[in-house]
């Protein structure tokens, strides 16, 4: 077990290093530089800026300078937002994105599991038909359309919630719902399938045959076994949550990481792109790492040595 954890940990670190290196060299291989695209500068000023940020040095030297400061947890200064370090930008924007993502996750997991279980237990009944129909409908809607519909109905027509921005808890409700709805839909579908698959297993027949009550069979045997494969998707789900929240953040004008990410890509802000990419990659890689470990602990059939 210890050996496996160490192995996975080293592979994760290696992956992050690989991402950072590829990202570094590809960004530098791009035509143009960060100071050409926006303001009008003379060649002299551009050269001075390049010298100031150390961008005129040989590429390999820049790489080693960047990597050594990265090892100390320093992402450097943004080239576009003058005087602001990337660390500072991440520190101010990530909590907002994280809060939104976490709220959506906490809302969607129980709701999705509940709908999935209900749908499977009442298979072929009206509830099931309704839930299956509405999940397919939600899955067919792009995230920004869900956001717009929610804004239109609950903010503009009914006036229950503010349309956009991020100030108080009531401001977070609509974006959370918009982010959670597709998650709920996919989880409902997944849980329904898994519940029905488990329903045909022999151990469930055994549980019924030994006279266990309906409730106990469902809770301790069916749901417990059905939930396990759901955990595998969790790491990937966090990644999609990050991606999905870009859209939601834009739709509700929330000052999260998404807007900075997109702007820094368009403006060729090397240090910002690098910093945000490495940060989110680390996040996803380690989320996958933890999920893999959890998987082995929860399901004893999967032995990881």
């Amino acid at each position: 077990m210890k050996k496996y954890i160490m192995q996975r940990f080293i592979i994760s670190l290696f992956t992050i290093w690989l991402i950072a290196t590829i990202c570094f060299f590809l960004l530098r291989a791009l035509p143009g530089n960060p100071f050409l695209s926006t303001t009008i500068m003379t060649q002299e000023m551009v050269d001075k800026m390049m010298r100031y940020y150390g961008l005129d040095k040989p590429l390999v030297e820049q790489y080693f300078t960047y990597m050594s400061s990265l090892l100390q947890g320093d992402f450097g200064y943004s080239l576009k937002y003058a005087g602001r370090s990337v660390n500072h930008i991440i520190r101010t924007t990530f909590p907002i994105s994280a809060q939104l993502g976490l709220q959506a996750l906490l809302f969607s997991i129980p709701t999705g599991l509940f709908f999935g279980i209900v749908s499977a237990r009442r298979r072929g009944k009206k509830v099931d038909t309704f839930l299956s129909g509405s999940t397919i409908l939600v899955i067919s809607l792009p995230a920004f359309l869900i956001a717009a519909i929610l804004q239109y109905i609950f903010a503009l027509k009914l006036g229950w919630f503010p349309v956009a921005q991020w100030r108080s808890f009531t401001h977070t409700i609509l974006p959370t719902i918009a982010l959670a709805l597709p998650l709920i839909a996919s989880r409902t579908r997944g849980m329904r399938t898994l519940m029905l698959e488990v329903n045909e297993q022999d151990y469930l027949k055994t549980a019924k045959a030994k006279g266990l009550g309906e409730g106990k069979t469902v809770v301790f045997h069916q749901i417990r076994n059905a939930i396990i494969p759901m955990i595998t998707g969790l790491g990937q789900e966090i990644a999609t949550l990050l991606m999905g929240s870009f859209i939601i953040e834009r739709a509700f004008s929330i000052p999260g990481m998404g807007a900075y990410f997109v702007n820094s890509i368009i403006g060729l802000d090397y240090t910002m792109v690098m910093g945000l990419t490495i940060f989110s990659a680390t996040f996803v890689v380690f989320a996958n790492f933890i999920v893999d470990l959890l998987y082995g602990i929860i399901d004893p059939r999967i032995r990881i040595i």
């Binding site: 991402i19 990202c23 960004l27 996958n288």
Partner: peptide, 18 residues
């Protein structure tokens, strides 16, 4: 295995930047 570990968004960004 390694390629799948890299978050898909990063491929996008690199290619779109490039």
């Amino acid at each position: 295995d390694i390629g799948l570990c890299i978050p898909p968004m990063i491929y996008f960004i690199l290619i779109i930047v490039y």
